[in-house]
Amino acid sequence: MIQFFNVSKIYSPNIIALDDVSIKIDKGEFVFLVGPSGAGKTTFIRLLLREELPSRGQILIGGRSISRLRPREIPFLRRNIGVVFQDFRLLPDRTVAENVAFALEVLEMPRREIKPRVEKALARVGLTARAHFFPHQLSGGEQQRAAIARAIVNNPHILVADEPTGNLDPAIAREIMNIFLEINRMGTTVIIATHAWNIVNSLRKRVIALERGRLVRDDREGVYGYEA
């Protein structure tokens, strides 16, 4: 469970990126984070990952305040949160399987445990056949699948994605969203910041809307609600 209590984030000198946001996201939910450019969606995600500290307020994950974490504990928070970005961020000199394995290697997991997990993650995103391709040999959609596989290979409780379909055409975007839905069905909390209004509108999932840092809307089965 994720809880924001009156969270504000002010960048120096006085840019208010988030303004007194309180919200609760239950375990296993699927949430779209929408709002115009500059509304604070990326800031919301960065706070969740503890890349930034809130200027005011508290963020709890699983009942624990993440602002109170000591620097040494931050990596262990992140092992529980998978992240996917608009620009995929795959390592160009490694194959898909190696990219996915990398996320476990750097956690010092034994190799014999890594291999089956990587295979399973690649199967979940439908990329088994491309396991030994390099990123530059893949389409954008396939690269994003690889990035998703990397984000879920350690079985995080939470998966966040910042405009994961921003670089993809609508048909591929829909495929990627289906993968997120599938991951969510297995119990993972999924939070997606997006501008893909047609997908948001058709899925009727929870929609949290931000505008100039403020929480303006929180609908159970919401729509995008902005001019595309």
Binding site: V83, F102, V106, L107
Partner: peptide, 16 residues
């Protein structure tokens, strides 16, 4: 830097 950034996101420790 790309690797380092990814390592941080997936939760590698600072010393690693």
């Amino acid at each position: 830097r790309r690797e380092i950034s990814i390592m941080k996101y997936v939760g590698a420790t600072d010393w690693f």
